[in-house]
Design a binder for these strands. Structure first.
Lengths: 234, 234
DNA sequence: CAACCAGTTTTTGTATGCAAATATGCTGAT
DNA sequence: ATCAGCATATTTGCATACAAAAACTGGTTG
């Protein structure tokens, strides 16, 4: 699906009228994370506002909100652009995410209830099912849910919030990845081990597994980014 | 100085005319961090805008920006309030900060240049001087600068950004603290050790020291918060 | 006396208007 | 042909206007 086609979709009808500008933030974030608005795209306020079915004011507020999250960059007197997706930045994000996931794994092993672990196991099997059928998008969905749920098991809402923010950056690259079957299988095996370590509540092992898992993700993302960069030279 | 007195200070004259609404974000953040706008204070747009010498539009954009940072909370159709300062939240923040500082310490031991370490040593002696004179505010200033500089030595801009955001929450409580001489001396001794570990580039030891230092800070902050909570019952 | 309801006021949320800054495009000169 | 310089058009940034929602008020009733 082309960028234009996605942008042409008018989403006004879906807006829940009792909700607030959160809708605009959410829509705009999705456009950025899913790549409909490519990195370094200029955000024309008039055009975007029309597209999202509002006026410039709430749109501008949404842009400021996302600027604080780091998904858009503000250029004084020159508007805003979608944040660049530089390999260097991505490495930084992964280093921080590594520390956060390790922390979460450790805490989760101590604080997760049996019900939590059951829930993660359920998500895990959903993920396996989509992996078996080769449904990448659905696989990613459950994959994300597992990681988020693991974070939530740590019982630290602040940790979850920071994680989500940083993860949005990574997800942007994810949407461009074409996972080879080999790598995919490997990621799934890693998830098997992660689940196992959680069930045994082996915090030390879980930390290491999460670090490795993340390191592999980084390799994948870097390949995508460098391929993109060499492919679409500026 | 009373809250009213701080708020009555009109800062319009200080505004750099070529800069944008960033000024408002910065001013509003300072008002919150330094406690002029107490936790859970309702932000009246008309009043605040007048106080800051702008109209509601840039103010609202600033509020959205700070909402993303977590310093203010948005209440749909009911405006915004300064984020609450709950002990539970503070514990969460410290746990995450602990992981981030530990990471930074480890990276800094590897990546810091000798010039970086010289700079931190200089900041350290400034801090000692203000400690000796009992100048708490100045002491805090250099203390903050040391921690920020340590973060920067890690060579990870994303890490610094996340750290700054979370640290703003902690600083809010800091401004209310009345450090006893005993605790203060202890904190300074810890900083001596931290500097020593950095000079020797002993990453493992530095991580531990930073964790302990942070744990002690948490104890202090918690005392302040519980005292506040019992003092000013709702 | 408490609770509820209607009318009023205040406040928020969104749209629009306007001025300043920037981007664009044209003309002419080298 | 390229580039500088100027005029025009667009776009941003801020202020204001207006509508909808919430808070407040006072008065009535159970």
């Amino acid at each position: 699906m082309s960028t234009a086609a996605i942008l042409d979709t008018n989403v006004t009808s879906l807006v829940d009228r009792r909700l607030l500008h959160e809708t605009v933030v959410s829509q705009l974030r999705d456009l950025i994370v899913q790549g409909a608005l490519a990195p370094e795209t200029k955000l024309n306020e008039r055009v975007l506002a029309e597209k999202l079915g509002t006026s410039r004011t709430p749109l501008r507020e949404a842009i400021k909100f996302l600027a604080s999250e780091g998904l858009v960059e503000l250029l004084p007197n020159r508007g805003a652009v979608v944040a660049a997706l530089k390999p260097e930045k991505m490495k930084e994000v992964f280093v921080v995410l590594g520390a956060l996931e390790a922390l979460a794994g450790d805490l989760a092993c101590r604080n997760a209830t049996d019900a939590d672990i059951t829930e993660i196991r359920a998500l895990h099997y959903h993920m396996l099912a989509h992996h078996a059928r080769g449904e990448l998008a659905q696989y990613f969905r459950y994959n994300q849910q597992i990681h988020i749920k693991l974070m939530e098991c740590a019982g630290n809402a602040t940790l979850v919030q920071v994680y989500r923010g940083l993860n949005a950056h990574v997800r942007r690259a994810r949407y461009m990845a074409n996972l080879s079957r080999e790598r995919w299988d490997k990621a799934v095996r890693e998830h098997e081990e992660i689940l196992d370590a959680l069930v045994r509540r082996d915090g030390v092992r879980l930390q290491g597994l999460l670090r490795d898992h993340l390191a592999n993700k980084l390799v994948l993302v870097m390949e995508v980014l460098t391929a993109m960069q060499s492919g679409a030279a500026r």
